[in-house]
Design a protein around this nucleic acid. Structure first.
Lengths: 150, 150
DNA sequence: CTTGAAAGTACCCTTTC
DNA sequence: GAAAGGGTACTTTCAAG
């Protein structure tokens, strides 16, 4: 399951997580490799499923979703279909983690306004009991895994 | 604060969120625009801060962090420096949201093992009382904001 | 892993509607 | 103001060593 990564692989991962559009030539320069060797490594990481994709990050407030909330959902029984249907329909739900504990699901929800959030929470509340916390601020910039200190 | 986006802008955002490395020529084809017009739009979205960056997504388990947890931190008083120091040091903390409610912070933490997670939670517990939930699974693929139905 | 050549892509500038 | 077309530099890709 776990891939074996050397220091160069980790350096590549750090760079592409920081800038997903970095040219392979520039990436090679930064990790002290030729362009083609860099390409081969990146392709290997992609093929192995270490790199699962490249995504643009979008400012939620700037595109009309200034309200971000964490909603925890306590889900009675094991009827997961209604939730999955909701996830397919409501793209305001950005993330859904199934967790241990009383609250089976932790969701991250983006809304255009408080009434909009209220409506979303209402829909979720049909499935189970919800706990909602509005997000003041995201205190970290985008961040992914790093090489552990060995 | 909010930018005015037309349907083409939203189509561009959808594509670059799905594939952050899509060539501008191919992107133009998909949104029915010439390469240069596409470039101009993308540049505008970047300059306006709508697109905040491009990032590779990395499979946590594949790089040695098979344990993901949501830790909620109840933080007494307003001493935020100790937490920020911890965020600077511990890159296992992938995300940190400051929220309303009893638990001031909601963190997403990646760990190499349960003992590793325990150690991380111990460090957090020095700052305040913590509630930890292990993540079974991420039930959604990567997802960003979409054009609202008008 | 490196080098070197060919194809494709991005960028800048001018023209057009 | 926004989009299309053309020329140049850069990047990607694939061959061979």
């Amino acid at each position: 399951m776990t891939e074996i990564l050397d220091a160069t692989d980790w350096a590549i991962l750090a760079e592409v997580q920081r800038d997903g559009r970095i040219p392979l030539t520039e990436l090679g320069r930064r990790v002290n490799l030729s362009a083609s060797a860099t390409t081969e490594r990146v392709k290997r990481l992609e093929a192995a499923g270490v790199i699962t994709g490249y995504h643009a990050a979008v400012d939620l407030a700037k595109v009309g979703f200034p309200v971000l909330a964490v909603v925890r959902l306590k889900y009675p029984g094991s009827q997961h279909q209604p939730l999955h249907r909701l996830l397919d329909e409501r793209f305001e739900i950005l993330e859904c983690l199934r967790t241990t504990g009383d609250d089976c699901y932790t969701l991250k929800v983006a809304a255009a306004s408080m009434p909009h959030l209220e409506q979303l929470v209402n829909e979720l509340a049909r499935l189970g009991s919800t706990t909602t916390n509005i997000v003041y601020s995201q205190t970290l910039p985008y961040r992914g895994p790093r090489e552990p200190r060995v």
